[in-house]
Design a protein around this nucleic acid. Sequence first.
RNA 1: CGGGGCGUAGCGUAGUGGCUAGCGCGCCUGCUUUGGGAGCAGGAGAUCGGGAGUUCGAAUCUCCCCGCCCCGACCA
Length: 577
Amino acid sequence: MLRMSTLFLRTLRDDPADAEVPSHRLLVRAGYIRRIAAGIYSWLPLGVITLRNIENVVRQEMDSAGFQEVHFPAMLPRDPYEQTNRWTEYGPDLFRLQDRKGTDYLLGPTHEEMFTLMVKGEYSSYKDLPLALYQIQTKYRDEARPRSGIIRGREFVMKDSYSFDLTDEGLVESYQRHRAAYIKTFDRLGMKYNIVSAVAGAMGGSSSEEFLAPCPTGEDTYVLCPKCGYAANVEAMTTKVAAVDPSGIGALEVFDSPNTPTIDSLVELLNSKFGGGYTGASTLKNVMLMADDVAISVLVPGDREVDIKRLQANMPGVNEIRVFEEPDFAKFPGLVKGYIGPQDAKKNGITVYADPRIAPGTSWVTGANAREKHALNVVNGRDFEVDHYIEAAQIREGDSCPTCDTAVVIDRAIEIGHIFQLGRKYADALNLTVLDQNGKSQVVTMGSYGIGVSRAVAAIAEQTHDEIGLSWPVEVAPAKVHVVVAGKDDSLFEAAEKISADLEGRGISVMLDDRRGTSPGVKFKDAELIGIPMIVVVGKALEQGNVEVRVRKSGEKSEIAVGSAVDEIAKTLASLK
RNA sequence: CGGGGCGUAGCGUAGUGGCUAGCGCGCCUGCUUUGGGAGCAGGAGAUCGGGAGUUCGAAUCUCCCCGCCCCGACCA
């Protein structure tokens, strides 16, 4: 039982000046966490209990799915990360340190290497597979910009698991088992979430999905189809555009277009010169970019920007994409700034990438590669060639769902889980092999699965709080019932003690506000701020032999006879789950 | 890393060159009070982020450094 008379807790009346998002503000005010440095937080008793509750739900669901818990150090030697090249690849986000002898260590940002090596050390037969291991560990990433309190910290708690299979089919099965376990986990945690397609990114691998908890303060943007349920991270959204027959389109025509370096100015000229009906979407924008020092041209409709983040996500192996600068243009004298068209790309030695919206056979207005000249009826496949199609244009609300053509909606969310099929990248690099039925050595294939445990504290707070405070789901709350003594009479304290003890006796955890000399108003405000799902007030109603029972989330209040209070509370609590 | 804001007691803040750095919350003592962040009285608590400089005099002006928050870049 938590007793507020002795609990190490001080709630704050004012919002902390350095907290903006609701979860951060309320977790600090209600005394769950305190900031130590940018992106680094301490956990006070209420916070620790809440974090542990989430951890335990995660642990139970992993165990019941048949995954086995192990534990690695947070401080790791350099060598394994050198073998997979991540000592270098991970860059400045990796916390590095040295021991007294000058030997390099790192604080683990994720543990693929260690798990791979652990399995390598114990197993060597196909008969041992499949295998899935997990840990709940503190991770360290020196984020360029930690933000939003506990949502993106530099130290955070993560559950990471890894599956090991002999075959690709086995990997798919392991992946599905994790997916199912994640669904059970997040359901129990009382979270709203969407499972969305993601881009596997630099980690490689074929299939990847994210569990996103929708909330306005989230930093991930995703699309959702209201009709068929298609959901994807904007980076992974695909565009379906059919090829068209260009045979009716007239020949390419170059025309004078003085002072039209922008799409807007071009559209205006088109409409005055050739009649109305032209919009930005009629034009073809040529964006020149450097992809790891290779010059590429990216084609998107004129009314859309290139989404560099999306583009990069769809160009695995490319580390940096940046826009063309003056010195780059100087190297390609064939490019006339503001009047670039794809017609001469080959001649200029430029690789042409096109968004799928630039479908084969479509006709465009674009630059004529000459100062103050544009071209009309420029047809893909006839007047220019596309080297690669790639998702590059920014996504908008109302874009077509790739599976059912319905207009999609765009929403923001916090990433709380990520599952993906890694494949053999780490097993190859670290030589994790087993012997198959024929005695032949086979490289193991892996999956990797993460849940942001400390982030889930914030995500749940974001999704469940209201204007007056936190409001936890039953599974994660630091106690299930908050018993408030409202008054100074000893009989009130005695009755509250008894109800609390009875609840605890039934396995229902209680926080008892047994502070003497604290006014009822203060206790009510604290209870609402702290967010325990049920509040029981032992106060003036006791004269009639009653206590008042409140449901934090709905605000529902009722008076119940003391004798049946424990039964009623247990019943209501069960209905809240 | 680019842009913006900020740093005064545990928390929130006032204070643009001049008296002992002010107020609210919280904390301590006493009395009163107890159903919505109580009242009165008395108290403790501050190297004004750090350093250097300008000045008779610096929380306040100048320079350097450190830290924090927000937007963006970045984020297996």
